[in-house]
Design a protein around this nucleic acid. Structure first.
Length: 542
RNA sequence: GCCCACAUAGCUCAGCAGGAUAGAGCGACUGCCUCCUAAGCAGUAGGCCAGAGGUUCGAAUCCUCUUGUGGGCACCA
C-alpha cells in the first residue's frame, strides 16, 4: 500500500464531505518537522474557487477527515493553509518486513507488464572508436532500458547504423589510402578522410592478411574497417555493462525494398517533388520551415530516407513504447522523420525522443573539440580504463541530460577516489560488513526482531526515505529521467551514514541489535535495487 | 537572422507537473576514530537562483523580453 495514495484518497473523501470538489490532490513530504511528515496544499489550491480563506477550508476538511489511527497519528492545519499529517512511527517500522520480504522486487512494479519497449541508443556509425560524448548517450540509453525493465517492460536495446552512405565510403577510402602507403608508398589521402591512427592499424592488418595486391576499390577495405571498429565499439560498451540485443543497419532497408516503398508512398501522398536533379520531401506541407532532400542529385539518398524506413520498421514491430536517445546535434532531424512516418499513416504517438546535451571535455583546462574524422577525441575506452565503469556510469546519470556538462578529465582522474558514486557503494559495503559481524553472534537476529524499538530520529528518517523508493522508481519511469534515482540514492546513503554514526548496530542489547540489523538489511536491499537499475555494482566490501 | 536547450555557492552540478528557511560534492577553515571500514559524521564561511517585467495567496520552478553559453538551421550523419 502506498502512503501518499492512501492519503490522497482520504483527503479527497474528507474534502467532498466538507462540500468541496477537489480536482488534484497533491501530497508532498514535509521538509520541516513542524509540518508533520507529509502535507497537502489542497486548501490553498481551492481557496479561490471556494471563495473562502485557506485556513477555514483546512479546518473544515480536517473536521471530516477520518484518520486511520494505525497510520496517521495527527492531522493539523498550518498557515497559510496547509494540511499536515503526522504519520505513526509504527507505519514506517512495519516497512522493514515488507522490504525484506519483497527483496529484489521492492521498487519494481507491473506498470509495464505485458508491454514491450524499444530503446535505440548509441547508434554511432562504425567510423571510429566511441568517444566520451557517445558515453553519455550509451549510459543514458542503457539506464532508461533498465528502468523500463524494472517496471516489467520487455525491452529491446537497439543499435542502428548507416552502412551504405558517404561516411562508410570515406572510411573505406581512408583505409585503402593507408594501405597503399604501406604497400608502395603511394597514397592520395581523401580530403575528408579519417585521420586516426586506428585506420593505419586496420590497413596494416589487411596487408598482413591479404597481401600487397588488393585491387583498387576492393570492398575488403570498407568491410574490414567496419568489422574491426564495430568489435572495438562493442568492447567499449561491454566495459560499461552495455549489451545491445538488436543491431539494425540501413542496408537491410534497401534490400528489403522498404526504402523504395517510402519514396513511392510519399509520392502517392503528393509529398515529393523533383528539383535540380534531386528528390525533395515537402516537409513545409507538414508544418516544417523548409523542404528537405531525400535523394541527392547524385542519386544517393540522404540519411533521412533510410531513417524513415527504419522508424516505420520499428512501428511495424509493434512496440508499446519506442524511445530514441539522441544527442542535441540531431534535434532538428528527428521531427522530419516522425513527420514522414505520421504522414504515411503509421502510429507515432508512442514515440519518445530523449535529447541529451553535449559533453564538453576539458583537458589541462583546455576545451577538447571532439571530431572523429580528425582523430581529435578522447575515447570512451580510455575514460573507463582511467576511472572505472561505475564512475563513468554514475557521472553521466547524476546529471540531467539537459545540462551541457563539462567533463574535466584531469579532475575526474584526480577525484575518482572521492567520486560521489563511492559514497553510495560505501554505504552498501558498510552494511554488508555489519551484517557479517551480526552473523557471528549467538542470537539469530534476522528471525526475531521488534521494529518498534527503532525510535531514534536517524532511524525514522532512514525509514521514511526508504518508503519513498517505489514512488521514485515509478516517477523515473514516467518522466524517463534517470538522475532522479541517482539523487534519491545519494539521499538514502546520507541517511544511512548519519544513522551509522548516531546508532551503533551491534551492542550488548540483543533486541535492539536485532531490530537494527533488520533495518540495515532493508536499507541494503533498497540501495542494491537502486544501484542495479543504474547499472552500478554494489560491492560487499571496499 | 531563425529553431532547440541551458544560465543556481570560487569550481562541477542537484532542486524545476509552483509551496513553508535554496542543497550536495570538490576547494577553504573547525571539530569527531581505546568503539560495527574516517571512502564517514558534525559545524563555519561562501547565493539579489544571469537581468528585467508578468501570472499567482505563493516563483529558482510557469509566461514574455534582454544578455550570455552550447547545439542546429547541408544534395553530412
Amino acid at each position: 500500500m502506498n502512503l501518499k495514495k492512501n492519503l490522497q484518497k482520504l483527503l479527497t473523501e474528507a474534502a467532498q464531505k466538507a462540500g468541496f470538489a477537489p480536482r488534484f490532490v497533491v501530497i508532498s513530504s514535509s521538509k520541516d518537522e513542524k509540518h508533520g511528515d507529509l502535507s497537502s496544499n489542497l486548501p490553498l489550491a481551492m481557496a479561490k474557487a471556494a471563495k473562502k480563506t485557506p485556513m477555514v477550508i483546512a479546518e473544515s476538511i480536517i473536521g471530516y477527515f477520518e484518520k486511520n489511527e494505525k497510520i496517521i497519528a495527527d492531522v493539523f492545519p498550518s498557515p497559510p493553509g496547509f494540511i499536515n499529517f503526522k504519520i505513526n512511527p509504527s507505519y514506517y517500522q512495519s516497512l522493514i518486513r515488507e522490504i525484506i520480504k519483497a527483496g529484489n522486487a521492492y521498487g519494481q512494479s507491473e506498470l509495464g507488464k505485458n508491454k514491450t519497449a524499444n530503446v535505440e541508443f548509441v547508434s554511432a556509425n562504425p567510423t571510429g572508436p566511441l568517444t566520451v560524448g557517445h558515453g553519455r548517450n550509451a549510459v543514458l540509453g542503457d539506464t532508461v532500458a533498465n528502468i523500463l525493465e524494472n517496471h516489467g517492460y520487455k525491452v529491446t536495446r537497439e543499435y542502428y547504423f548507416n552502412d551504405a552512405g558517404r561516411q562508410m565510403r570515406i572510411l573505406g577510402d581512408s583505409v585503402e589510402a593507408r594501405y597503399r602507403e604501406i604497400v608502395d608508398g603511394s597514397s592520395v589521402f581523401p580530403e575528408d578522410g579519417y585521420q586516426g591512427e586506428y585506420i593505419r592499424d586496420i590497413a596494416r592488418k589487411i596487408q598482413e592478411e591479404h597481401g600487397n595486391n588488393i585491387k583498387k576499390g576492393h570492398s575488403v577495405f570498407r568491410k574490414s574497417a567496419e568489422n574491426d571498429i564495430f568489435d572495438e565499439i562493442k568492447k567499449s560498451l561491454k566495459n560499461l555493462g552495455i549489451h545491445h540485443n538488436k543491431f539494425s543497419n540501413e542496408k537491410t532497408f534497401y534490400t528489403s525494398g522498404a526504402v523504395e516503398k517510402v519514396t513511392s508512398d510519399l509520392r502517392n501522398k503528393g509529398l515529393i517533388y523533383e528539383e535540380e536533379g534531386a528528390t525533395w520531401f515537402k516537409t513545409t506541407e507538414l508544418g516544417m520551415d523548409q523542404d528537405r532532400v531525400l535523394i541527392k542529385s547524385s542519386g544517393e539518398p540522404t540519411y533521412r530516407l533510410p531513417d524513415i524506413a527504419y522508424h516505420i520498421n520499428k512501428v511495424e514491430r509493434d512496440f508499446d513504447l519506442i524511445i530514441d536517445i539522441l544527442g542535441s546535434d540531431h534535434v532538428a532531424t528527428y521531427p522530419d522523420v516522425v513527420a514522414a512516418v505520421k504522414a504515411l499513416n503509421y502510429k507515432t504517438d508512442h514515440f519518445n525522443v530523449m535529447i541529451h546535451q553535449f559533453v564538453t571535455l576539458l583537458k589541462s583546462g583546455q576545451k577538447v573539440k571532439m571530431s572523429t574524422r580528425k582523430a581529435d577525441f578522447v575515447t570512451l575506452e580510455e575514460l573507463v580504463n582511467d576511472v572505472g565503469g561505475d564512475v563513468v556510469r554514475y557521472f553521466f546519470i547524476m546529471r540531467s541530460m539537459n545540462s551541457h556538462l563539462n567533463f574535466d578529465l584531469d579532475l575526474a582522474a584526480d577525484q575518482s577516489e572521492k567520486n560521489p558514486v563511492f559514497y553510495l557503494q560505501y554505504a552498501h559495503a558498510r552494511i554488508c560488513n555489519i551484517i557479517k559481524r551480526g552473523e557471528g553472534l549467538e542470537k539469530d537476529f534476522m528471525v526475531d526482531y521488534d521494529p518498534s524499538l527503532l525510535t531514534h530520529l536517524a532511524e525514522i528518517e532512514l525509514l521514511k526515505t526508504m518508503e519513498q523508493f517505489p514512488e521514485v522508481m515509478a516517477t523515473a519511469q514516467n518522466k524517463l529521467e534517470p538522475q532522479d534515482i541517482a539523487n534519491y540514492l545519494q539521499d538514502l546513503a546520507a541517511r544511512f551514514h548519519r544513522f551509522y554514526v548516531d546508532c551503533r548496530v551491534i551492542t550488548h542489547d540483543n533486541d535492539l541489535s536485532a531490530a537494527r540489523i533488520a533495518l540495515i538489511t532493508a536499507t541494503k536491499i533498497v540501495l542494491a535495487n537502486g544501484l542495479k537499475v543504474l547499472g552500478i555494482s554494489a560491492p560487499e566490501r571496499m
